[in-house]
């Protein structure tokens, strides 16, 4: 029961940090799930997050795995509601209000001002993830190759992540 309450607190807090994308909550997610509550290790968090990039749908569904590990299926359900509930309600009510505020001059200022902050939060998330995932030239080469290919083509990223799995297997597997 204590775990369930902790899961609700952590993931409803993380929910409101996802400005610009789920990645914005990553640095705080690392601190809370790994350092504070020890539901998983940092490498495990990175692995789950990366696997989540292949899964269809909103790209933070990996939180389900954390909930399940910490408190079984109830944990998974609770995490889903805690993580998606607060922002969904906010989108629902603010969405209705926002349409009404079309003529409010500060509306554009807020939209305009928050976009560079959102990009900054995403970049900070990138850095936090990269620190755990990129070490040595092989991983750097994989990350760099994926980045360049995506910036230059319209290939589905899921294929590149799968290609990364193959490359990782070939480079690091020692039977």
């Amino acid at each position: 029961m204590n775990q369930i309450i902790a899961l609700i607190r952590v993931f409803s807090y993380l929910s409101i940090l996802t400005v610009g994308g789920g990645l914005a909550a990553f640095p705080e997610m690392k601190v809370l799930t790994v350092d504070v509550h020890k539901w998983l290790t940092f490498p495990q968090l990175i692995h789950l997050y990366s696997m989540g990039q292949i899964a269809p749908g909103p790209n933070m569904m990996m939180i389900v795995s954390i909930g399940e590990w910490a408190a079984g299926i109830p944990g998974a359900i609770v995490v889903l509601i805690a993580f998606f509930g607060p922002t969904a309600l906010l989108a629902f009510y603010v969405g209705r209000l926002w349409v009404k505020l079309e003529k409010w001059p500060w509306r554009n200022s807020i939209q305009r001002g928050l976009s560079p902050v959102a990009i900054g939060l995403l970049l900070a998330g990138c850095l936090s993830l990269a620190r755990g995932a990129v070490s040595g030239w092989v991983t750097l080469a994989i990350a760099g190759a994926v980045l360049l290919i995506l910036l230059r083509s319209k290939i589905n990223p899921a294929f590149l992540v799968l290609a990364g799995a193959v490359a990782g297997g070939l480079a690091f597997y020692r039977p």
Binding site: A133, V134, V146, P157, G164, G168, G169
Partner: peptide, 25 residues
């Protein structure tokens, strides 16, 4: 060992992916 090796590749690829998404945004 094989899963760990593959996941290292997946994680590295994910870094490239999210960096690309952030740059495009």
């Amino acid at each position: 060992p094989l899963v760990t090796a593959m996941l290292r590749g997946v994680a590295a690829a994910a870094v490239g992916l999210i960096l690309a998404t952030t740059i495009q945004l």
